[in-house]
Design a protein around this nucleic acid. Structure first.
Lengths: 111, 111
DNA sequence: TGCCAATACCTCGATTGTCGATGCCTACAT
DNA sequence: ATGTAGGCATCGACAATCGAGGTATTGGCA
């Protein structure tokens, strides 16, 4: 009934998740989304309408680099690789995220 | 200390924080923001441009009720009180939040 | 007295991020 | 031949946050 406009996703964390995913291995867009969805136990679903704009952001900021290639299944893919700047950015985002989560936790626990 | 550029706020969590705050005591808008900021150790700053629209949302949805009154300091204030529906909504939001955070944690820990 | 900071309410416009839909193309299986 | 899944991407709608602005009252201080 209604009204399930489930957030699906915690806004503002997508870039961090993508960067983190790329620390394990370079990957193409679709594969990144699949990985996140699988590892998160289906809790996080990255729609393509969120994914590709996010990758564009990361490219523009220089956090990742892209290269066209061919996947194992023979398809044309754009492979993203984390840059040195991307690693630093990830560290920053993780720090910020942990900081905010800690703040939220304090409120929610009613310390 | 607080970061300077884009400390921001974790989007999508404001309603939950407000509802949670009101479980401790009815309060007025400004007081709610102060409480969250203080308890979170200054990690969360709720701007008034976010606060009041959020309270409107909660009112419209019936999660809170409002009443005009006078604060201890003698000022005209609008006091918000959690409704039964608000309690249920809070439970829902907490469940969703925990679910998403768990998903994020799995990705970030690279299980 | 005059002034200003803090309290307290609220609105507006700009910006950003996510979502659903759509479109295109290729590989593979039925 | 047809459909399903992989893969890229963009578009417009929508919602939430942010900064700035506006009003008003209280209390302190010079």
């Amino acid at each position: 009934m209604a009204t399930n406009k489930t957030p699906e996703f915690l806004p503002g964390t997508l870039d961090m998740l993508i960067l983190k995913t790329l620390t394990r291995a370079s990957n193409h867009g679709y594969g990144i989304a699949q990985y996140i969805q699988k590892v998160s136990n289906e809790a996080l679903r990255i729609g393509e309408g969120s994914l590709y704009p996010a990758l564009q952001r990361l490219l523009v900021n220089g956090w990742v680099e892209a290269e066209w290639g061919i996947s194992e299944t023979g398809r044309r893919v754009r492979i993203y690789r984390l840059t040195a700047g991307g690693r630093k950015q990830l560290a920053r985002e993780v720090a910020e995220f942990d900081y905010l989560i800690a703040g939220i936790a304090r409120v929610m626990e009613g310390a």
